[in-house]
Design a protein around this nucleic acid. Structure first.
Lengths: 211, 211
DNA sequence: GTCTATATACGGATAGAC
DNA sequence: GTCTATCCGTATATAGAC
């Protein structure tokens, strides 16, 4: 059971990878409860029994997918917020841009995580780890510094965080409705998201002046 | 089977209402697939068989709850956006305020709807009805008017809608995480949302000037 | 209308052949 | 490692007594 490289996995080569990739797709799309192991097997093009052979149970397979998804979801925030070399503004820019790139590739991650947390809060919230990752980040230090200097209006930083993450994530969470209302095709939607990479930092800047 | 008044239902009096209220709570909290009819019966304090006696099946009961939830969720937008008497600004103010009030009372509605749409897009999206409710609303007319007059920067109105709805809804969708990160109690959270009633319209105004 | 007991279906998991 | 066949628990739904 060789561990494969994170960056460039050998695609769908091994059966194990095939199952994991299929599981990610189905779990992300339907959530734990609505997913049937038979669907995963079919998506992976393998026999149902193999799923249990490799992963013992639906739950164990799910835990693996959830852990990886949480990792992806968090990592973009943590890394960006804790870079001590960059300014507040450029931190926002990289975070927004990287995040939107992730979501264009895996648009179902946020709704997946949020709805599973709803179904099982205590179990999952703890897996988010250190609640201080945001509140004690270098970003927050810089933020409070900027408030002191009068560059940002005095306000609960949580509002700022909600707006930041919400502006990035919400369009993906509401994509089906949005695409329906706006009659958007896949590409139309992605183009809008590309625009937001530039717009969101500007908007946040404007907001941070509002009393 | 007398139809009861919408505004002031005779609370939990009838068994039918008891079941519906219980179903709303459980479905909102866990979604269709993860909900067991036994849980609903227990929550309602009635025998499991009665559920089928009154509503025939889990699915039929679910459809009723979903339809009502969609109605609540939409109605606040539609009514506010189509009032021809009010200015653009005051439309926003009422919409934000009414919406946040609804969500403080039923905080699980958005995640409920969004995750069920994800599980079954085509079936539910159609129930949203007329895709023109937003794009052909009086609000959009006023919006485009304001753009013409140079009061609002020229931009795809969908960005504006995403920001508007996202700022309102996202904190509720991400509430478990937010409350965890910010160490918020129920009241702390609600207070933040009350603040947003005032702040969101101001923020949107600032955003609408950003090039 | 409400209950107890039970039928039926479905989905996760395993035994055992290859 | 991979398949077929099958087991078994769980959840929905109904039959029938009260």
């Amino acid at each position: 059971m060789k561990k494969q490289l994170k960056i460039k996995p050998v695609a769908d080569s091994s059966t194990e990878e095939k199952i994991k990739n299929a599981a990610r797709i189905i779990f992300h799309k339907k959530g734990y409860a609505a997913t049937r192991t038979r669907d995963i097997a079919e998506e992976a093009g393998i026999n149902l029994a193999l799923l249990n052979y490799y992963f013992r149970s639906k739950e164990k397979l799910f835990d693996i997918i959830m852990l990886e998804s949480l990792h992806d979801f968090r990592q973009h925030i943590i890394v960006a917020l804790n870079d001590e070399k960059t300014s507040l503004e450029s931190k926002i820019e990289t975070l927004v841009s990287n995040y939107i790139d992730l979501l264009i590739n895996q648009p179902d991650i946020p709704l997946f995580i949020l709805s599973e947390i709803r179904n099982n809060p205590q179990a999952l919230i703890s897996k988010l780890n250190q609640k201080e990752i945001i509140t004690k980040s270098y970003f927050i230090k810089q933020f409070q510094q900027a408030v002191q200097e009068g560059k940002i209006v005095h306000i609960n930083p949580l509002h700022y965080i909600m707006n930041l993450i919400g502006m990035i994530v919400f369009p993906f969470v509401g994509r089906p409705i949005l695409s329906y209302v706006g009659q958007l095709k896949q590409d139309d939607f992605n183009n809008l998201m590309e625009q937001r990479k530039i717009l969101i930092p500007k908007w946040l800047k404007a907001i941070s002046k509002v009393k």
